[in-house]
Amino acid sequence: MRHRKFSLIFTYMLATLIVIIWMFPFVVSLFTAVKPLDELMSQKGLWLPPKSVHLENFKRAWTEANMKRYFLNTLIITAPSVLGALFISSLAAFALAWYEFKLNKLILFIFVGGMLIPFQMLLIPVYRFSVNVGIYDTYLGIILFHISFQLGFCTFFLRNFMKTIPRSIFEAALIDGAGHFTIYRKIVMPLVVPALSALGILEFTWIWNDYLWSLVLIQSDMKKPVTLGLTTLQGQWVSDWSIIAAAALIAAVVPITVFLIFQRYFIEGLTVGAVKG
């Protein structure tokens, strides 16, 4: 008994130490974001707590540093990308989960293989294609790309989930004379809502956090999402660390909130389809 108690205390101490180390970078950014500039420069270190809290830095990041615009752009890009990827992949997943046909396994293999390819393999041709078709530096261009790029993972994920639905439901509906699209829309889709939510949360976070593809496909400042905007700020506000720290926290707030609210979905989704980052 005594041994048990000792080991519990040890667990708490170690776990607390780990969490303190893990939260340290967050705390440092938060401190940096609320300190006025002269305090930052006169102090001995960024890890020291602020003497006074200046929330204006967030306001300035939001308006003067243009975070408002970047934030809006991310929303404009992320929402249709997630919805599009979910809808279009559900069509593919439906076909691959329920129908037996010759190319079934091969097509599944292509979707899964494509999602694991290093994205550098796509960089140049996708950039060139966007320029040639005239969708470079447009919301549409990057949205269409995000949707297509996420199809591999979404299809794989949804197909696996659909496979767990008893086949008899599908067959009974066919015998009753229901059309194939009706089965998809009225029977299968309502049953996969839990999977769609888990997947939606994951996709939302990934697309929200995307940097590389915005870097390659977006050029004008008016269309930049938060991640790209943040690196632009680094150049413009070089010496004003507080503004950059505040902007970074603004960029982080949405994915963190979404994660905290939908934690269970998020982790389930991540572990079921654990391949992406």
């Binding site: 950014s29 956090n209 940097y211 938060v226 943040l230 690196t231 960029a251 982080a252 963190i256 994660f259």
Partner: peptide, 18 residues
């Protein structure tokens, strides 16, 4: 402990620059 997993690498990079 899981929290950093939800962040963009850009934000992680920025946080680590401090």
């Amino acid at each position: 402990v899981f929290l950093p997993m939800t962040l963009s690498f850009v934000v992680i990079g920025q946080i680590w620059s401090w």
